[in-house]
Every structure is written in C-alpha cells, then in structure tokens.
C-alpha cells in the first residue's frame, strides 16, 4: 500500500545531510514550510545550498536556518525585504554565497529541472549583469541567454491538503513555488494543514499529482512567520 504520510517533521527531514541542496517553497511567508525548516534547524546539518525566492525575515524559519550557519549558498531572486536581517549581515561579511536569478528565470529553471530539460533560452537578462558570461543565441532576430534547469536533493514545501498518495491542493497565493519544487526535487517533503482520504481532493482540483511527492507531514496549525517576527521570536 502506498502511504506517504509521515509521523513528524523531524522524521521527514532525517536523511537531509551536510552539503545537500534544498529547495524551500514560499514567497515571503506565504507558503513557507516553517515547521519543516525548523526541523532542519534542529538537525544542524551544514553546508547546504538553498534555493528559495527570498531569504526569510526576522530570526525564524528560513532566516533561522541561515542565522544558524547551515547555509553555504543561496540561489534566489530577492534576498532582501523589510524584515530580512540575517542574510544581509552574513552576505556583507562574506559568510554566505549568493547566486542571484531573475524570478521568472528561477521559476523556469526549477520547472525545467523537474521536466528533465537541462537548459533553455530566455530573453530575460539579455544585456544585463545577470546575463553576463552566459551563452547567447539569436532566434528570429532576437537575442536570448541560455539558462540551466535546476534540480535539488530535497524540497520543503507547504500545501493545504494532501492524501496518502501525495496529491496536493494549495491555498491562494501560498501555492507559488510549491508545485514546481515538488517536481524538481529527488525527495519532495510537504507539510499540509490537513490529510484527507483518497478522493478527498477532487481529481480535477489536484494541483500537484502525488507522483511528485515523496513525504507528507500534517501540521494542523502552522505557525505564522510574520507574527513570530513581530513578537521578536528567535528559533531555536
């Protein structure tokens, strides 16, 4: 019998080791799998490459993982925001590497990686600093830069509901990078608000088919990152 539902966040991330590449879903706090990230902080593994749109805020969630010195390199599109304190400090001190990628290129690199496409051409970043050093080809008179598909050892994602097959449904704009990160990771680990019986998500409304998901953890009442930041909380 297929059953991807696990017991705990700690158990779900237990085989993420030093040097792993990890995609982490979310756009700001929307869709950020905060309990899974905290479980990874608890593991204390180091030298991670993290692929995520932002770098977290305050000193919880992704920012806590970075503050704990566990991330060697970030691949992201927007590493600063109103409450991002940790990443700028470490970046200026030369203690963390950054690969800055335009947001659409980041999304397409992840999608391509998940679809088995090693590289593609895009007009985004042509003639800019972020296009420098990349192969340029002209198609129908327009220049494009080559970008590579992106895969990862693991993905940590938050969705709304899952069944034991790993079929997922999301909430509003918390969907963002979740579906494509599940596709692009060898092991996709998803925290959901609710586990439902097979068929509990209408097959017409399944957003991520279970084939892209390896592990599911139910977190019925996830913590809200912005509230923790407002309270000045620090993890651990």
């Amino acid at each position: 019998m297929i059953n991807k539902i696990g017991v705990s966040a700690a158990e779900a991330v237990a085989d993420i080791g030093d040097g792993a590449s990890v995609m982490i879903g979310g756009f700001g706090e929307a869709g950020s799998p905060i309990e899974l990230i905290h479980a990874l902080v608890d593991r204390g593994v180091r030298n991670l490459t993290v692929i995520s749109n932002n770098t977290g805020s305050g000193r919880v969630g992704l920012a806590a993982l970075i503050a704990n010195g566990q991330v060697a390199k970030m691949i992201c599109s927007y590493p600063r925001s109103a409450n991002s304190l940790v990443f700028p400090e470490l970046y200026r001190a030369g203690k963390i590497a950054l690969e800055l990628v335009p947001q659409g290129t980041l999304a397409e690199r992840i999608r391509a990686g998940g679809a088995g496409i090693p590289a593609f051409y895009t007009a985004t970043a042509v003639g800019t600093q972020l296009g420098e050093g990349k192969e340029v080809r002209s198609f129908a008179g327009r220049d494009y830069v080559m970008e590579r598909g992106l895969r990862a050892d693991f993905a940590l994602v938050r969705a709304d509901r899952a069944d034991r097959y790993g079929n997922l449904a999301y909430t509003k704009t918390a969907r963002n990078f979740g579906p494509i990160m599940c596709m692009a990771a060898r092991t996709a680990i998803v925290q959901v608000r609710q586990v439902v019986e097979p068929g509990g998500i209408d097959p017409e409304a399944v957003v991520t088919p279970g084939i892209f998901v390896q592990r599911v953890v139910e977190v019925a009442s996830p913590q809200q990152e912005s509230l923790l930041v407002k309270e000045g909380r620090v993890y651990p």
């Binding site: 756009f27 700001g28 706090e29 929307a30 869709g31 749109n53 925001s81 109103a82 947001q103 659409g104 980041l106 999304a107 397409e108 992840i110 999608r111 999301y170 909430t171 509003k172 704009t173 918390a174 969907r175 963002n176 990078f177 979740g178 579906p179 494509i180 957003v207 809200q224 912005s226």
Partner: peptide, 26 residues
C-alpha cells in the same frame, strides 16, 4: 497572509480570479 501581492502586502481577489504557480505566472 496567504493572499498577498508581489510587494508581500495583503490583497483581495476579485470574483473570477485565478491562482497559479510561479512557472505559470512567469
């Protein structure tokens, strides 16, 4: 907090709105 814009500010969705993932959005 799960319904925000690109500036990470809270918004609403009109009747007839659609949600999609980042690769579709781009």
């Amino acid at each position: 907090p799960e319904l925000i814009n690109a500036g990470k500010k809270p918004v609403t969705a009109i009747s007839g709105a659609a949600y999609f993932h980042h690769a579709d959005s781009f």
